[in-house]
Design a protein around this nucleic acid. Sequence first.
DNA 1: TGTCTCGTGTCGGGTAGCTGG
DNA 2: CCAGCTACCC
DNA 3: GACACGAGACA
Length: 175
Amino acid sequence: MIRILLLLIPFILFAQKPKILLLKVYKDQNITGWVMSEKLDGIRAYWDGKHLISRGGKIIHAPKWFTKDYPPFPIDGELWSKRGDFENVSSIVRDKTPSDKWREITHNIFEVPNAKGGLFKRLAKVKPYVGKYIKIIKQIPIKNKKQMQNFLHQVESKGGEGIVVRDPKAPYINK
DNA sequence: TGTCTCGTGTCGGGTAGCTGG
DNA sequence: CCAGCTACCC
DNA sequence: GACACGAGACA
């Protein structure tokens, strides 16, 4: 129906590799008190503390210098460059022998697996590591439905894919 | 019974990688 | 080097 | 990801 996506509260565990949370289509639930962010159209990448792993569990060969300052704990986000550049990002990121084009890429974090507390507290753990390549996706508190619709239209007008809304109080459950 | 939701399966545009000629 | 097919991304 | 279907849940 609508092009808004809702983050699954209890999420699904992937076959073996990454424990990834998936998105559901926004229905019409109470989202007051929730947060929203732009849904970036890039490549999902999970950092397990040592390697970047794709949604399907494949290792993403990033240059040494790209992951040099990554944290020792897991973080999850989207490899992205700019709007409407998915094919390019896909190409860069999936190259087995990484090129200098990785300079264009940023890893936009939206989750910190295994961390305690609500979303903001978890994301705060990443702050010391934010730099040229690691970014934290801005989470905007939702005041009401209208404000959310405005944000969605704003994102779409800029060529964005949609927005993600989620409950910041929900902990990251590790099943 | 009709409607809505959710899980599963298939297909598609596009690129990387492997192999054989 | 190139065509054809598989594997992955969303 | 986009669709198409079918099994369940619900009123």
